[in-house]
């Protein structure tokens, strides 16, 4: 890839100290680069660190080690003014549209807050911008006077989107933006995301546990397991030709809304639960204890992302072998 990535995460780890002895290894040694205009999906079970990674990118959490580069510049080396600019250009949309909007602020105040903090225009200009944004996200300008409780979940998520867009972001971290919404409304919000991307040339990191949903928005998809990215590939490749056993189990666990297809599908069920991310060891594959193909060597060998096909990386020592098996 020749163009400079808009965002690059290099060897990023985020650990949280619980007490003197115990540490939560939320994110460990993650590498990820995102091109301008691209949508990268980030999937995994709850507790796999996907939200922590998203928040570390938004600079809500401090990295324990490793670096984040924005347009080639390291966050750690940025001056305060540069960091402010970064915080403005990178915005976040939260999972829960009920708790992420201040119930005591009107919609106008909610959307204007970021613009005011970043001194984007006169009060009159900001008011006009609020009206424009509301229409852009499919609400009415009259809604600006109302409070969040007067809206449905889907409408609130639209307010959250308008708030993020108010400061002219380039990059948006969407943290499970549709999981709190009803199925019929989910599709509306996904459509809004796709339209806005085309209209404004945005770049998204789309975090979700819904693999089918991610498929509809992403150019590339990364799969996380216990703080590590275990597979990353262009979306079509990941869904048609998954390499990592974890990706395979995840895909096989998704139920397809079609009884005839469901009856004929073979299932891979793993009947153990995800380990606790407290004090994880650095050796061995983290999925080994649940992996149906695990061998003795999996428990000791350190796995790295390796290119199995152009642009397709998987962190499994057996990946090449699986490929042969499948062929």
């Amino acid at each position: 890839m020749s163009t400079q990535p808009i965002l690059e995460v290099k060897d990023l780890s985020v650990h949280f100290k619980l007490n003197r002895k115990n540490t939560v290894h939320a994110v460990t040694h993650v590498n990820l680069s995102i091109q301008p205009g691209e949508t990268v999906g980030l999937v995994g079970e709850s507790g796999c660190g996907k939200t922590t990674l998203g928040r570390a990118i938004k600079h809500i959490y401090e990295a324990t080690s490793g670096e984040i580069f924005y347009k080639g510049e390291s966050l750690q080396k940025m001056s305060k003014a540069e960091l402010n600019k970064y915080m403005q250009e990178v915005q976040m949309i939260f999972q829960d549209p009920y708790s992420s909007l201040d119930p005591r602020m009107t919609v106008r105040e909610i959307i204007k807050e970021g613009m005011r903090a970043n001194k984007l225009g006169t009060p009159k200009e900001m008011d006009d911008r609020v009206d424009e944004l509301l229409e852009m996200v499919g609400l009415h300008r009259e809604h600006a006077r109302r409070f969040p409780h007067e809206f449905s979940g889907g409408q609130r998520q639209r307010i959250g989107v308008a708030r993020a867009l108010a400061v002219n972001p380039k990059f948006i971290v969407c943290d499970e933006p549709t999981s709190a919404l009803d199925v019929s409304v989910q599709a509306q919000v996904i459509k809004l995301f796709n339209d806005l991307k085309k209209q404004l040339g945005l770049t998204y990191l789309f975090i979700s546990h819904d693999l089918a949903m991610v498929k509809y928005v992403s150019d590339r998809v990364a799969v996380m397991y216990l703080g590590e990215i275990v597979e990353i590939a262009p979306s079509d490749q990941l869904y048609h030709n998954p390499q990592h056993p974890y990706t395979k189990t995840l895909l096989s666990a998704v139920q397809i809304p079609d009884p005839k297809v469901e009856r004929s599908r073979k299932k891979m069920v793993i009947d153990t639960e995800i380990q606790s991310p407290v004090n994880l060891s650095e050796v061995g594959c983290r999925f080994a204890s649940r992996c149906p193909w695990a061998t003795e060597s999996c428990k000791t060998k350190v796995t790295h992302l390796e290119e199995v096909a152009p642009g397709h990386f998987a962190a499994c020592t057996m990946a090449a072998q699986h490929k042969e098996d499948m062929e």
């Binding site: 199925v183 989910q186 599709a187 397809i256």
Partner: peptide
């Protein structure tokens, strides 16, 4: 039925 994303 049309509004749900499908994997397949």
């Amino acid at each position: 039925l049309k509004s749900i994303p499908r994997l397949d």
